[in-house]
């Protein structure tokens, strides 16, 4: 039955207004928006049917995003534009659908396609643009970048350097960096870890609530082994 469904991928933002809504609550809010928008969403079979709606990756509480993605499946066809309009009329304040694309039947799922994401970190005041400028290259020239990472059972020193794909100084008046990191089910690095490692490197104490994080975009691999956006790279109709 699922094969008869029409598949779509959407790109959306999560702004200041909604950044304190955690992932599970956000999914419920999104499901309700789909219902209000009267979009003919397809449901799973089984004892407790649920909407066929998936997100690429949860966004941590407190993060904003200008490039998040999800997939949905419809029972009846609607144009991508129609879906976008209807969803935008019903989204919670702070959420905007930027783009909707209809996918080919054999497009890979958004969660499995995801392999990298880029973030902007806006540091607390102590991390000045000057500090970033003077240290960012040296930081990346280290042989390894060790942070204490929480695993399921305990805390463990982990080298995060292999998971940092790109990093650059993005400061304006405030100290900011942009980082592209591995993301998804295989390898996943949180930008908090990058921020923590950098602050440790420059001798400042890291407080998990003081920096601001924004997800900029999410990527899949293209045929040449490069990275491409989750809509740009997917097989469409």
């Amino acid at each position: 039955m699922t094969n008869d469904n029409f598949k779509y991928r959407f790109k959306f933002t999560k702004g200041e207004e909604i950044k304190f809504i955690g992932h599970l609550d956000f999914m419920v809010a999104f499901q309700r928006a789909i219902k209000r928008a009267d979009i003919p969403i397809a449901y799973s079979n089984g004892f407790n049917p649920h909407q066929l709606l998936n997100f690429a990756s949860p966004l941590s509480l407190g993060y904003t995003s200008i490039g998040d993605y999800g997939d949905l499946q419809l029972q009846n066809w609607l144009s991508a534009d129609e879906i976008k309009t209807r969803l935008n009329e019903n989204m919670p304040i702070g959420v905007k659908i930027l783009e909707v694309a209809e996918l080919s039947k054999n497009a890979k799922k958004v969660m499995t396609s995801l392999c990298a994401a880029s973030y902007e970190v806006k540091f607390e005041e102590a991390v000045t643009p000057k500090i970033i400028e003077e240290n960012i290259d040296k930081f990346m020239l280290q042989d390894e970048i060790i942070v204490l990472k929480k695993t399921k059972r305990n805390l463990k020193d982990t080298d995060i350097k292999p998971d940092i794909l790109e990093i650059e100084n993005a400061s304006d008046k405030a100290g900011k960096i942009k980082a592209k990191v591995n993301a998804g089910s295989v390898k996943n690095l949180k930008p908090e870890s990058v921020a923590e490692a950098f602050m440790k490197y420059v001798g400042l104490e890291f407080n998990k609530n003081k920096n601001r994080y924004t997800r900029l975009d999410m990527y899949m691999s293209d045929q040449n082994g490069g990275l491409v956006g989750l809509i740009d790279g997917v097989e469409k109709i």
Partner: peptide, 9 residues
């Protein structure tokens, strides 16, 4: 934190 934000539907 959502208790203190508003912005509900």
């Amino acid at each position: 934190p959502a208790r203190y934000i508003g912005n509900e539907i």
